[in-house]
Design a protein around this nucleic acid. Structure first.
Lengths: 163, 163
DNA sequence: CGATGGTGGTTGTCGGAACAACCTTCGACT
DNA sequence: AGTCGAAGGTTGTTCCGACAACCACCATCG
């Protein structure tokens, strides 16, 4: 057979992966929007900020940690700023740098949204798999990310947390 | 620890999975748009039609096979119709039914787009994994889809193709 | 110190997706 | 037959993401 095509097994896996790619984001989005009025991406932005020192991060770093482009992030932060969940500020160093900081309102929003979100993730992903499969998925996504993000421009989050 | 939260291992896997969810669709989209002027979803629609008898499918079936809602599909088909890649027609049976059929132009478009797309998929997914991992991914996605699409409303594509 | 390329970030525009409302047709029940 | 609920599709609006252009600031070198 032609080497440039996919065999039956590969194709079946690929088809299912595209289905997941199509369905999962929608599920995450709609749960969060329904229950907390937040996009999954907005939630992720807030969550990353909440885990950072001073609850503040440079735009470019925040973009890296959320796998987003800078323009996209800028828009989202503006929206969140309008809802008073984050605020921009400037630090002492590089005058080009802009920082986003979580406000009290934002902090509260994440805390309230988190349980429902985690529950959704649990139900649709974690609990659907055996422990072994979850480990396998960890390795698989790591391998894929080496291709998807070859220069590791994005956060150091991908690096193995091994001993 | 609180059972309702994720442990370190689970969290790491989940974080990477969200990264894949964020990055992979963008890569597929931009490759196809750049090289063929098609969205990944548009490509998928055309591809599904091309594999169907008479290169024609009922809207609802096509929606199922592409994991899309009917409104979304309707809009996309309208666009593709404007580019003369598909055409709508009505069959003999149910008068509510609308069918979408691939035109010669559309058929040509898929054939030209396919190699580049497959190459992208190969590079970013298939070749990034060992054969064993690919099999594991097949099982994993299958398990996840049972949660994501519990009623199997979507195409029968997910069903195991086993003996 | 002045010019020049590069980086960090923002803004504007345009296309696509979600959601809701709507219209038509089918099927069942009376 | 007449009604009523449900299914199949379409249309309209609103919002979000991608992309390109742009501005401000830094760094290097003349």
């Amino acid at each position: 057979m032609d080497d440039r095509w996919l065999n039956t097994r590969q194709l079946a896996t690929w088809v299912r992966l595209t289905a997941v790619l199509e369905l999962l984001p929608g599920i995450l989005d709609s749960q969060l929007r329904r229950d907390s009025g937040l996009t999954h991406f907005e939630y992720y932005v807030l969550a990353m900020l909440s885990e950072s020192p001073e609850m503040s991060l440079r735009m470019s770093q925040l973009a890296a940690r959320t796998n987003a482009t800078l323009p996209r992030l800028s828009h989202v932060v503006s929206r969140l700023e309008g809802r008073e969940m984050v605020e921009r500020h400037h630090g002492a160093g590089d005058a080009r740098a802009t920082y986003a900081r979580l406000t009290e309102t934002g902090w509260q929003a994440v805390r309230e949204a988190a349980p429902g979100h985690v529950e959704t993730v649990r139900h649709h992903v974690i609990d659907a798999l055996t422990e072994e499969q979850l480990d396998q998925l960890g390795e698989i996504t790591e391998a894929m990310l080496e291709r998807l993000d070859p220069d590791e421009k994005l956060g150091p989050v991908y690096r193995r947390h091994d001993s």
